[in-house]
Design a protein around this nucleic acid. Sequence first.
DNA 1: CATTTACACTAGCGCTTGCTTGGTTACTCT
DNA 2: AGAGTAACCAAGCAAGCGCTAGTGTAAATG
Lengths: 192, 192
Amino acid sequence: MNVINASPRRKELTRLAAQLFVQEGFDRTTVRMLAQEMGIKSGSLFHHFKDKQEILAAVIEEGTQNALVIARKALNECAAEPEIRLRTMARAHLETLFTDRNAHVVALFEWRRLDPAASAHLSHLRDAYEALWVAVIDDALEAGLIHGDRFLVSRFVLGALNWTVRWYDPSGPRSPDDLADELVAMIMPTSA
Amino acid sequence: MNVINASPRRKELTRLAAQLFVQEGFDRTTVRMLAQEMGIKSGSLFHHFKDKQEILAAVIEEGTQNALVIARKALNECAAEPEIRLRTMARAHLETLFTDRNAHVVALFEWRRLDPAASAHLSHLRDAYEALWVAVIDDALEAGLIHGDRFLVSRFVLGALNWTVRWYDPSGPRSPDDLADELVAMIMPTSA
DNA sequence: CATTTACACTAGCGCTTGCTTGGTTACTCT
DNA sequence: AGAGTAACCAAGCAAGCGCTAGTGTAAATG
């Protein structure tokens, strides 16, 4: 296996793996399929990754890291009004979801295939991301923008947003930003 | 294979299969695991199902049929006010989701493992169920109870509800009905 | 009583899986 | 020029996979 964990070659392989994992699912994707997609033989794959599990972990880590970076940057750059921050966070969520779509679909639907060690490590990343959401929602609740239980609201909103990967086509007439705004409008009484 | 497609034995086997599919995922569940769970040898399994795919189809069909029955019954029995019908539908959705939890988790996350023939057949069932939702949401929109695009609203609501299987624990303090009511309240400006 | 049917068993075929081994090539750095 | 290393390949192993063939047996059916 490669010692430099972030070699450019490895990054590109991770990207291709994400695509295959989405197309076929992790379990149905064989190391031979992965190798062919990458233009190498199946044995050579284990020069870059110690085993198949590590490829899955790399895909998910990549996606989650990007989500964190994008969300933090968006929140830093936007105004301090709770309403704007809420909209910004929803937009950032969909932006990541559809620019790194493959990685995120894998993260959402193949999470359980991770072994316990990788799962524990990646859970921390995921928690850091969700903490951003909870903070934004807390502010919106405090400002009286939305109503309900903070825990439930964040789960419902994240559920609605994550589920979009199942039906939304970004090449259609509606932009991800439109989508985010419509969801925020749906849960905000004052903006009817 | 059994000619009587709905033999009680087959129903019980389907229930056990659903549990294993949730625990391990469809692809990782081997026919030997299924057989052991059912107390028979792997060869005997093919007396009840023509192949592994058919077991998956049986699990999903069972769950979706139940959802339809429960939702129709609930809607027939409840009042005609759009607000009540909306709440009723949300409650029925979560009721099915957590009484037939295994079957529904499989339906939601292993749908893509179905072969095209089974998928086409089950899509009709699924569509019939979603038609109930769209009707209820249309009424609520017309009555001015909620606002937004009918297509988007139904997708968001279904997403939020379906995602509950990922985090909600029915044995906790909150009942599924509470959950449904909170979601409806969240999107209804007038009920703040 | 003879036959069919439902359900289970044993044994294993043919194939695919993730991964290993041992060695080769091409490039960089001193 | 020589050493080191990243990237690759050919070959294949051991295990596990879905599924089939053929058989036994007890209960229902004519």
